[in-house]
Nucleic acid binder design. Structure first.
Lengths: 346, 346
DNA sequence: TGACCATGCACCGTAAGATCT
DNA sequence: CAGATCTTACGGTGCATGGTC
């Protein structure tokens, strides 16, 4: 596979041309599938390419075409299940479309670091930049600055000046609440994500809209930070609320913490309190009790991001697919409310 | 930031040269910090660079130097906490060293896909390829084929023909078992990872070596697949083993499943059975009970991979650091064995 | 005339040799 | 003579132009 001649040089288009007895331009035409090449000539060139194991130089090609078939990907935040999965599937979709992806990952959402990473990508002549970032601040960091290349954000809030793909967090939250309401719950509380998280805000919106539609009260939501620890802390608070019979938790990690706190307080899930999470992380089906949750299709999201790129670049006229709506996965952490608790509600 | 003139062109080295009143070669000398440039001239050139917002074209530079300052990263398998963290920190370390990283992620460890991804990276003239792969098959896929660039594998088993960085899984496993032994446990079972996982094999090795050293029996280990579900399945088997008082589980996800199964069987953790996991995932501190586990320093691992790259490329003479030894994090899932169970052992 | 193919040049840097002060 | 600077060549493509049958 090392494709090198005696002098350690890889074959060039001129080597191929000489071997095939044509000009380098004809080789170029064959490479790029252009017309006006006689089939016999084409065959000779292809034979020479194979024989010399010639592969075109991306650097030389990029220099003259100013196209690199390379995309930039910026991912901020901890390597949690959602963003990591989205990045993985985006990467696979890009490879399928014969694009390379230069990735810039960073734990912190620091505006200066993000901007310098974006500039680095632009200098590498990426054709578009995809941003996977849960926090609003990540969009702010790249908003307004003129990158010179299209920016596609995976984000659940709208923003001028950049393209966007997302999953319907609002609809997912409504699924969760509708499920609890249909089981007979009337006092349904919410543990949300951090205030700067766009997904969290959409889920709060869905929760309160669903409650309003059913004429049910919406108590002030609690706000965690996505971690199991914050779920535990707020779970202890929720355990003292004798009126509520169900909690819609904004992600599965916090839901695990909530269930732990409820168990410690002597409350049974789902007999005393029903719990619905969000994401369907791998652990969700195997905690005690298995968690009813809202599954997000990160595969679709990653592919949608790539579809967005192709749409913007004009490679592909296919429209970017509609945002997919999450699925409710009913497991054992939800059931009809117990008589005792129902009796307490007004 | 769009750095373009009226015709939409970015500045070239010639534009800078003209503005500074020097030749483009002098500009190049300034860019590359070469000597023999008068301070006054250097200042004029730097002023012109700033004024035109000139940045050198990586494509043109790569064409002539055959160096791209770009690395390839291949990551296989699900986006679990360990590999995702390692990839993140490697990425940050690479950026600190002013390298770009082209990433190829793939869910499946398919030899053909891996090889074509590696070839794609080589065509992009990456200067080295880093492989993060838990499975032995991933090393097999790239073993032997002549890539033409150095390959640095993050892998816990040795392999000819490639450089390697790793965390000391064997020592980590010994820490876990030593902890259990020091608490008084004498019948310590093991739930390992899948047979094709290199980390899993090392942990089995550490577990059995520690037992042998203490003169304790090593029963045949069970083998899961890293998922919480497989932990649950094997946990039900373990629950019927009346003699064992502790289980060393090869990762935290499976440990969660095991604890769930034990709880279902009416066994208390740690009163009846002590559990030690591996990894210290974010959930570990908040499950019930909080999990004693072996923390791996994925940050150090990612940086070690980058150090390995720099070492191979000769950019940096600093030695690749010694593999770091994991830390034991003692939480509530381990305690001295109960009298009842101890009495049962011979 | 049109299908086929060759020639020259641009792209934007770095490296080596030539020239000037 | 040597430090400072310039001139020339080159890398590997794709595009525009032109030539030939």
């Amino acid at each position: 596979m090392s494709d090198r001649d005696d002098k350690g040089r890889v074959a060039t288009i001129f080597d191929v041309a000489r071997l095939a007895g044509v000009s380098h331009q004809t080789v170029s035409r064959v490479l790029n599938d252009l017309p006006n090449v006689r089939p016999a000539t084409r065959a000779r060139v292809e034979q020479a390419i194979k024989q010399l194991r010639y592969v075109p130089s991306p650097a030389a090609r990029a220099l003259v075409t100013r196209r690199t078939r390379t995309l930039g990907l910026i991912v901020t935040g901890a390597p949690d299940y959602g963003p990591s999965s989205t990045a993985l599937h985006f990467n696979e979709a890009a490879r399928d479309a014969r694009y390379s992806v230069i990735t810039a990952s960073m734990l912190e959402t620091d505006a200066a670091v993000m901007r310098s990473a974006a500039e680095l990508l632009v200098r590498q002549n990426v054709e578009a930049i995809v941003l996977i970032a849960a926090q609003r601040a990540a969009l702010d960091a790249l908003d307004g600055i003129e990158l010179g290349v299209p920016l596609i954000a995976v984000a659940s809030e709208d923003r001028g000046g950049m393209h966007r793909v997302w999953l319907d967090q609002y609809a997912g939250a409504r699924l969760a609440v509708d499920h609890l309401v249909s089981l007979g719950h009337r006092e349904i509380r919410h543990l949300g994500g951090p205030p700067n998280a766009m997904d969290a805000a959409e889920r709060v919106r869905g929760w309160s809209a669903a409650l309003a539609e059913h004429g049910l009260p919406a108590r002030e939501p609690l706000l965690g930070d996505w971690t199991p620890g914050s779920g535990y802390v707020h779970g202890r608070v929720l355990a003292r609320d004798a009126e509520m019979t169900a909690v819609f938790v904004s992600n599965d990690q916090m839901a695990i913490g909530v269930m732990h706190a409820l168990a410690e307080a002597g409350l049974s899930v789902p007999d005393d309190v029903s719990i619905v999470g969000f994401d369907d992380i791998p652990e969700a089906a195997y905690v005690a009790p298995p968690l009813t949750t809202v599954r997000q299709d990160f595969d679709a999201l990653g592919r949608a991001a790539m579809a967005g790129v192709l749409g913007v670049l004009g490679d592909d006229e296919r429209l970017v697919p509609e945002p997919s709506v999450p699925d409710l996965i009913v497991r054992a952490s939800t059931s009809a409310p117990s008589r005792d608790r129902v009796a307490l509600t007004p």
